[in-house]
Computed example of a mutant assay.
Amino acid sequence: MNASGALRRIGERRPLVHHLTNYVTVNLVANATLATGALPVMANAVEEVEEMAATASALVINTGTLDGDWVEAMILAGKEANRRGIPVVLDPVGAGATRFRTETPERLLSEIDFTAVCGNAGEVSALAGLAAEVRGVESIGGDAREAVQKAAGRLGTTVAATGPVDYVCDGERLLAVKNGHALMGRIVGSGCASTAVVGCLAAVGGGDAGTVAGALAYFGLAGEVAAGGAGGPGTFEPRLLDALSALAADPDGLDGRLVVEEVPLA
């Protein structure tokens, strides 16, 4: 599904998107979900995650601030979403930085069927078994184009790697997303928010490469619009939310502004 069609459906249906996300970026993730037109809920207690996941239209799992209880909650929520046919999106934040942050996404991927996986080049490289440098939660190296192809083949799902150019691969198609702005890399949580937007579009359009690429292009275009009047990262973040909201309110206005190109598989 293209981005304009998905955003129109989101505006009509107001789907609930359940996030098990990290406490560093939870506010931005919630607001990005709301600005896109969906309804966010943040619930990570093992006592309620299955019940909450069962009522949602999509589940987004983010491994940014892990502990043992949260991991068990992710497993419970993911399995319940799978039972009900609800799309599940993974953001493997920090994969490759420590053993725990690398082994946890691997466990999640072995126990939950994910509709899409979205991370930076280093994180996706780690999941693909490729060498990359991840420092904390930041990617210092990694070839995004190679990583998504390897990871999509290994994981059997749609994989996106964000960077100066975002790449999305489902094993059959490889798409390059060229919307975005450098200021997006200067605020904490832009990657988490972009995955939240992927979850919003997955709630109404599934997780094929075109839908995931459209979500990232829409998010990147919002970054371009926000940067137009921003004085720096401090004024950029609220303008990003304004831009997401304005673009979602006028989906037809996206026509000709999203830069998504199909590129050859290696």
Rank of each mutant, 00 (worst) to 15 (best):
R13S: 03
L20C: 05
T21E: 00
Y23F: 14
T25Q: 00
L28M: 03
L34D: 09
P40T: 08
M52Y: 12
T55D: 13
A56N: 10
A56E: 12
A56Q: 12
S57F: 02
A58D: 00
I61V: 12
I61G: 07
I61C: 11
G64V: 06
D69Q: 12
V71W: 03
I75A: 10
A77Y: 03
G78E: 09
K79D: 11
E80Q: 15
A81F: 08
P87G: 10
P92R: 15
V93I: 06
G94P: 01
G94T: 04
G94M: 06
A95V: 07
A95T: 01
T98M: 15
R99T: 15
F100A: 13
T102F: 02
P105L: 00
L109Y: 01
S110E: 09
S110D: 10
E111F: 04
I112D: 03
D113T: 10
A116D: 04
A116W: 02
G119S: 12
N120R: 02
A121T: 08
G122R: 01
V124H: 14
L127I: 06
A128L: 09
A132C: 08
E138N: 12
E138W: 12
S139Q: 01
G141F: 11
G142D: 14
D143L: 03
A147N: 10
Q149R: 07
A152L: 08
G153C: 04
R154M: 09
R154W: 06
T157F: 02
A160H: 03
V168K: 04
R173A: 07
R173P: 02
L175E: 14
A176M: 03
K178G: 11
H181Q: 11
H181D: 08
M184F: 12
G191Y: 00
G191A: 00
A193P: 05
V197E: 01
C200H: 01
A202D: 01
V204W: 10
G206W: 08
G207H: 11
D208C: 13
G210V: 13
T211G: 03
T211A: 07
Y218G: 10
Y218K: 03
G220W: 03
A222F: 00
G228Y: 13
G234Y: 11
G234V: 14
F236L: 09
E237D: 09
L241I: 05
A246S: 13
A249L: 12
A249F: 15
P251I: 08
P251T: 11
L258W: 06
E262V: 07
V263R: 07
P264H: 02
A266C: 15
